[in-house]
């Protein structure tokens, strides 16, 4: 029974990782670039929510509603002013620029907030739980998981049912032809990065409410997110959700064997899948 419990907790934890990864997956699907600062941008969003909650005494949910458009603007500006200059055949510039950005954000947060760990207070929600048969489920992990499903669903709908999604897909397939149809790839990329940042802000809310965070934890979140994207198959949004769950389950099972093995077993699960299914579980396009 204890194993069923462990796996259930792992699946719910996977929801958090899927939220970390959804923004990355979206941006990769459209631009074929990886933002190495993704984890640090999530942490930055968590601090933004924290400031709104403590300074203005807002509830975390209201703070999210304020932070999301701000982070959209951050993503949009970042893409327009910086990252669009690096788009091209050569993969080196976007990688090195976002790597530099990661270091800058981390140290700016250290300077602004010092290295203490923080948490976004969520009141009684933090410890609330309910029982399903013999298994006790925390309300917060369940909420995270439900949000991950909703976010994936919403991105899926935007991608396949709206004019914006059509522009995303067209730009992704062939930016030159798309621009003949009146689409500016640069603007589409900026909207995509902005949207990715909105998802990152949602992830940040749960990151901050569920556990302590400090300015240096961004790269580890990036790695989990990246593993989820690869396990799921690049460019597949539902695959990313499954990928997050795989990492989550591997971590809780590893931790159940020996607490020191939690992170390591997540990474090992990723490496094993990379070995047997190098294109991920659900590769887009089915090639």
């Amino acid at each position: 029974m204890i194993w069923v419990d462990t796996v259930v907790q792992g699946i719910l934890l996977g929801g958090l990782y899927a939220l970390f990864a959804a923004g990355l997956s979206l941006v990769f699907g459209i631009m074929r670039v990886v933002n190495l600062a993704h984890g640090d941008l999530i942490v930055m969003a968590a601090y933004l929510i924290l400031v709104l909650v403590t300074a203005l005494n807002l509830s975390p949910l209201i703070a999210l509603l304020l932070a999301a458009p701000l982070m959209f603007a951050v993503g949009w500006l970042l893409q327009q002013l910086v990252l669009n200059r690096t788009v091209g055949e050569d993969v080196l510039p976007p990688l090195l620029v976002t790597f530099g950005l990661s270091v800058v954000i981390q140290n700016a947060l250290l300077e602004g907030f010092n290295a203490d760990s923080r948490r976004i207070g969520a009141g009684s929600l933090e410890i609330a739980s309910f029982s399903v048969g013999p298994i006790t489920i925390g309300v917060m992990p369940a909420l995270t998981f439900a949000t991950a499903i909703l976010v994936t669903l919403a991105l899926q709908l935007i991608f396949y049912r709206t004019a914006l999604g059509r522009a995303f897909r067209a730009t992704s397939d062939d930016p030159d032809t798309a621009s003949l149809m009146g689409i500016r790839p640069g603007n589409i990329f900026a909207v995509a990065t902005g949207l990715g940042m909105v998802v990152a802000t949602i992830a940040a809310l749960y990151l901050g409410m569920r556990a302590n965070f400090d300015p240096t934890i961004g790269p580890a979140r990036l790695i989990y997110a990246f593993e989820a994207v690869i396990i799921g198959g690049m460019g597949s949004l539902w695959g990313t959700l499954i990928g997050g769950i795989v990492i989550g389950v591997a971590q809780t099972v590893g931790a159940a064997i020996d607490p020191e093995w939690q992170i390591l077993s997540g990474h090992l699960a990723f490496l094993v899948i990379l070995l047997v299914r190098p294109r991920g579980l659900f590769p887009a396009g089915g090639r």
């Binding site: 670039v33 990886v34 190495l36 990036l222 790695i223 990246f226 990474h267 490496l271």
Partner: peptide
């Protein structure tokens, strides 16, 4: 490319 970069980080 980029995935190689993060892959090396993971290992």
């Amino acid at each position: 490319d980029a995935y190689f970069a993060i892959g090396t980080w993971v290992v």
